[in-house]
Every structure is written in C-alpha cells, then in structure tokens.
Deep mutational scan, measured.
Amino acid sequence: NQASVVANQLIPINTALTLVMMRAEVVTPMGIPAVDIPRLVSMQVNRAVPLGTTLMPDMVKGYA
C-alpha cells in the first residue's frame, strides 16, 4: 500500500504548505501520494484542512 499525504496540523485556507505540516500515512481512500511531498512545499491549500485529514489533489492549488 502506498502512503498518502496527511495533515500534521490544522492548515488554514490559503496557507502555503511546509514539510512540518505534512506526514506520510497509509490511508483509505488514497490521497496525494507521499512521494509528492517535496512538490507540495510552498503550494497553497484552497480550503482549511483539519489535523489528520488526507490531502486530495483538489485541495491544493496548482497540484492537479
């Protein structure tokens, strides 16, 4: 099973992602693959992402 990107903290809307905000976890359903974490750094979320939420492609501006 491939790990997905999960929020390590509450990420407010329009926040630029940093490594500290994300962790890799095997979850269902799968979200953004953990291998993409370096690519996500400095991209912004388009909604508030609660702690423990799996990041989906439509939550990150410019990802999809």
Rank of each mutant, 00 (worst) to 15 (best):
Q9T: 11
G31R: 02
R39H: 06
P29R: 03
V45F: 01
N14I: 02
T54R: 03
I37E: 03
E25I: 03
I32H: 00
V5C: 10
A48Q: 11
P29C: 15
G31A: 03
G62T: 05
R47K: 13
A16C: 08
Q9C: 05
R39V: 11
A16F: 11
A7E: 00
V45G: 01
V49Q: 02
V41D: 03
A64Q: 15
N1P: 15
R39P: 03
V41K: 05
A24K: 06
A64I: 15
N8K: 10
P50I: 12
L51A: 12
A64G: 15
P57C: 14
A48P: 07
P57I: 06
Q9N: 07
T28H: 06
P57F: 07
L51C: 15
G62S: 13
N46E: 13
A3C: 15
V45L: 09
A16T: 09
A7T: 12
V35I: 08
A3H: 14
M43H: 07
S42V: 03
L17R: 00
P50F: 15
M43D: 04
V26F: 05
M43R: 06
N1L: 14
L51W: 07
R47N: 12
L19P: 12
N8E: 09
V20R: 04
M59A: 12
T53R: 08
T54Q: 04
P29Q: 13
A16V: 10
M43T: 10
I13D: 06
A64D: 14
V20L: 11
R47A: 14
A16H: 10
D36G: 04
N14R: 06
T53P: 00
T28R: 02
P57W: 08
P57M: 07
A3M: 09
E25G: 04
I37D: 00
L51Y: 10
I13P: 11
I11S: 00
N14Y: 08
G31E: 02
M22C: 03
M56D: 08
A24Q: 14
P38M: 05
I37H: 02
G52D: 12
Y63W: 14
L10T: 11
I11Q: 00
A48H: 12
Q9V: 09
K61N: 14
V60E: 02
K61V: 12
Q44P: 13
L10Y: 07
Y63L: 14
M21N: 08
V27N: 03
D58L: 07
I13K: 05
V6W: 01
P12E: 10
